[in-house]
Amino acid sequence: MEMNASDIKHTPFPAAGTMTDAEREELRRHGILLTSLEELYNWGRSNSIWPIQFGLACCAIEMIAAATARFDIARFGAEIFRPSPRQADLMIVSGTVTKKMAPLVVRLWNQMPEPKYCIAMGACAISGGPFKQGYNVLKGIDRFLPVDIYIPGCPPRPEALLNGLIQLQEKIKGEKLTGPNAARHVRSDVNNEHPIPEYGAHDLVPSKNTALWSPPASPTT
């Protein structure tokens, strides 16, 4: 039987949002796998996160331990540590960020292509940690970079890093490609480059990126 192309009736594909998870699950049980481009794309991305090979301090040792045979970060598709920021998807800020190091961390972040994610690993990267009172210690990398996942610990165990990675995968899987809540890397109205602080006479100039970070209201006042 011959068929003309004009004979094929195109039925519009239902938008991913219009079908409930229960309905999809029902279809899946009958052997019909439905997905959306968004889901497929996010699934692929979340399972091949390449971190930048970038150890700062003590936490870097636990990061290496997470990559070795016992903890085996390869199970989550994130074992390919890239020495070049141009090839990396994820920056694990693993350790104390000093003020001398902060401009370089921001520069590395700017050199990474989108989509990119940032994990603040350990107390120091989150808030300065035990070294908070140091004059040369940055009190949290979130003063200069948008952090996706915070992993507390000093240092966090490799399992904690893996858990943080799984959380990041969940986050990536939930990202939207269209609409007002679209992910950062598909939007044109978001500035992905962050200004690099300069070395000043007493401190970094500026000492924080006010576009990204402002002090939350103190819980005590």
């Binding site: 700062l56 301090a57 003590c58 040792i61 350790g95 104390t96 000093t98 001398k100 190091m101 370089l104 035990p130 070294f131 009172q133 140091g134 004059y135 040369n136 210690v137 240092p155």
Partner: peptide, 27 residues
């Protein structure tokens, strides 16, 4: 690039409280 001011912090804390910081010298 990893100057975390261990010595200055230790001068502002008690003798024993510097012990955990020594862990983080040579980690």
């Amino acid at each position: 690039y990893l100057h975390r001011n261990h010595e200055k912090i230790a001068e502002n804390t008690s003798y024993l409280a510097s012990m955990p910081y020594t862990d983080r010298l040579d980690y």
